[in-house]
Design a protein around this nucleic acid. Structure first.
Lengths: 110, 110
DNA sequence: CAGTTTAGTAACCTTCTGGTTACCAAAAGA
DNA sequence: TCTTTTGGTAACCAGAAGGTTACTAAACTG
């Protein structure tokens, strides 16, 4: 897998997560797979707008469509989030350090 | 801390992370604190563009300015990333499951 | 085989984003 | 104090993003 591809898909991933509506869609799909109408019913925006959000999420491979027997459903695919987790790991020591410093500050200790 | 505020700052956070240039800035600041010119020298874009990115990062509290003795420097503040980590935790079980399924698939086991 | 439901797409509009150049303010140094 | 360095902001522009309505294509259902 070339670096450029990885870079690109990482961009798609972070872009997809940038919108609150899309994060909300993911949260809804965490509970259970849902039809597009089902998803749209949870928002004030129109169904085509949700369709567009779903396209972005599919491009980031965060959502996939499954034809479960009779109806087509949107299903959460959380696997790409492991890449966000990996990205975060490079910063973990820093925020740990920050928190420790904050804790020390709050407790009035040096 | 009201939920609305949290929601808002989470939006700022994910928005800030959505741009690859900004993520690159964070990576540079992980090595050491840097002046704005120092940061800008690492990109093909102009310094004002970097200034704008820095504003977004400051609004998300990911970067803070410190006047270290003689010069002002941009410093990484990774603490907000803990919120991304917390957000991810709600999905962890899902991608673990996905990976386990993928692993099983690759190994050709049921 | 109609008719209804479901969902994607086209066309369009407005706002946001990221970039530029030009300008300005403040701090550092001579 | 004058000059240079540093970096923020204003004004502007092109393209992307997110929303809408209208249309279209499948696929169930009666």
């Amino acid at each position: 897998m070339p670096a450029a591809t990885t870079r690109h898909s990482t961009d798609l991933l972070f872009k997809a997560l940038a919108d609150p509506t899309r994060r909300e869609i993911l949260a809804l799909l965490r509970q259970r797979s849902r039809s597009v109408n089902d998803l749209a019913a949870n928002f004030y925006t129109s169904r085509p707008a949700i369709s567009k959000h779903l396209r972005v999420l599919r491009e980031a491979s965060l959502v996939k469509d499954v034809t479960s027997g009779t109806s087509r459903l949107c299903e959460l695919n959380a696997a790409p989030l492991a890449r966000v987790d990996a990205w975060l790991r490079d910063y973990e020591t820093f925020w740990d350090r920050s928190l420790r410093r904050l804790k020390a500050h709050v407790e009035g200790k040096r």
